[in-house]
């Protein structure tokens, strides 16, 4: 593993941009992006219909 300080800085930059919902591309690794999942209604097994809240999730797309 690389230097601890360097890794912390890399993580800080990456996380900071992800919090701003920015897409981050790193060569050799992949692309980090934020996807917004809309609210949706879902029927449970017991018949109840539940509205699931929206969410902003981190999606990682690996590089070939």
């Amino acid at each position: 593993m690389t230097d601890k300080t360097a890794e912390q800085e890399i993580v800080a930059i990456l996380a900071g941009h992800l919090k701003k919902h920015s897409q981050v591309q790193i060569s050799g690794l992949g692309t980090f992006s934020i996807t917004h999942q809309k609210q949706k209604q879902q029927q449970e097994k017991d018949g109840r219909i539940i509205m699931k809240p929206p969410a902003d999730i981190i999606v990682f797309t690996p590089e070939n």
Binding site: H21, I49, I50, M51, P53, P54, A55, D56, I58, F60
Partner: peptide, 28 residues
């Protein structure tokens, strides 16, 4: 391929806008 599981704290920070919202019953 490489798979990534984000840290919970980071996920919460990213999803801060909708954090705390729990599913609600539409047809109680």
């Amino acid at each position: 391929y490489l798979d990534f599981q984000p840290d919970e704290v980071l996920s919460l920070e990213v999803n801060h806008k909708f954090a705390g919202m729990s599913p609600i019953e539409v047809s109680p």
